[in-house]
Design a protein around this nucleic acid. Sequence first.
RNA 1: GGAGGAUUCGCAUAGCGGCCGAGUGCGCACGCUUGGAAAGCGUGUAUAGGGCAACCUAUCGAGGGUUCAAAUCCCUCAUCCUCCGCCA
Length: 419
Amino acid sequence: MIDIKFLRENPDVVRASQKGRGEDVSIVDKVIAIDEVRRAALEKFETLRAEQNLLSKSVGAAKGDEKAALLENAKELATKVKEADSKRAEVEEESKQLIMQLSNILDPAAPIGGEADFVVIEHVGTPRTFDFEPKDHVELGKLLGAIDTERGAKVAGSRSYYLTGVGAMLEFALVNYAISSALKAGFTPVIPPVLVNPAAMEGTGFLGQAAENVYHLEKDDVYLVGTSEVPLAAMHMDEVLPADKLPMRYAGYSSCFRREAGTYGKDTRGIIRVHQFDKVEMFSFCHPDQAQEEHKRLLQWEKDFLNAMEIPYRVIDVASGDLGSSANRKFDIEAWIPTQEAYREVTSTSNCTEFQARRLNIRFKDADGTKAVATLNGTLVAIPRMIVAILENHQNADGSVNVPAALQPFLGTERFELV
RNA sequence: GGAGGAUUCGCAUAGCGGCCGAGUGCGCACGCUUGGAAAGCGUGUAUAGGGCAACCUAUCGAGGGUUCAAAUCCCUCAUCCUCCGCCA
């Protein structure tokens, strides 16, 4: 949610931001208009209420005929107050609905444009040249007894899979490596709930445009999270965090559930795009002035992970039209996938500034008062895509796969052999 | 799933339909006292919104209702605790 005071004072900035995202600019003026109506309605109600409070007191003090007369007036006033109050509530709700439609204000540094208009910040590592025909992860997964998509489909439908044998072991190794490096970096490890209530989902902004990708359990009115960003962000909902504890960093490990509606025909092969996967997510609550630096740090931790996996990748600055509504800037890391001869997204980090915290009512207190914190998130490792990258990049001609040195202590082997 | 109890200002508690935005204790901050500290004494100590100054308004788990007036009465819901049942 945008700060209404900021919008009042800088409508042009908000207009430009909406335009840059390719979103509705006219909302800005609608918000300004309704905000005036809102304040007028509020003032009217408050004046009447003040009058009523006074009158009520004199009723209490009065006696006999005098009291009867006052009561007469008070009754009349009470209906007026009720009317003014419901008008106020109505306008406030309307105003809130409109404000909620506005996305976060873009970082001026974010590239403007659509999905294809990202800016490549850097390339790290060089895609390997194979002296044999590289196999894709589905084939390798079969040869190693690591991934079983056929049985996944049989049991759970399309975009489902089993990780078996070294596949399962690889997940444990990745998670262990991720959590132990997060610990070293000062994160608090967290295993969050993956079943959350509407307030948590709503507050983190996943019931907007992203709603169709969220699983909802109607009978109990709870949602399956698509990322542990949701329970991690909502963890401190309605709290005032101690300023001297910021930044507060959490590394959440959880399953993630995504309906993947509207992706028919996209990445149908293998485990690049699936309905359920596990992920270690970094989440940071920090001082708004620190948000940009924190964002760089999250990106660095993501790079460290890719480096440790010895996988070539590039970092992109995601364009305005492709940002989530909460993010003011987003960096994606894309790993080189040999059989696709392309870089594919494996991690992503967003700076949500105070946008998300304002919705969730997460604040901190310092000398100037109580203000919204900034929230940032970043993927440390999303298991299936990392498995794809590791298998494909480190394969040998016979289908065996070399284990990156960083993972060897967790796996007790240097190489995955065919089964 | 059933039966009871609870939910008040950081914590613990008091609270009669109007004198309650709310008392007390602890904690915290500042001051006095002291060589210094403790104790003691004094003062202060929620959040949000509107004017942005005085001030006003809202908030006693949430949402409704009764009333001129609700922390206080009624209804619905949520959470926690105890007991019973069921499942592990």
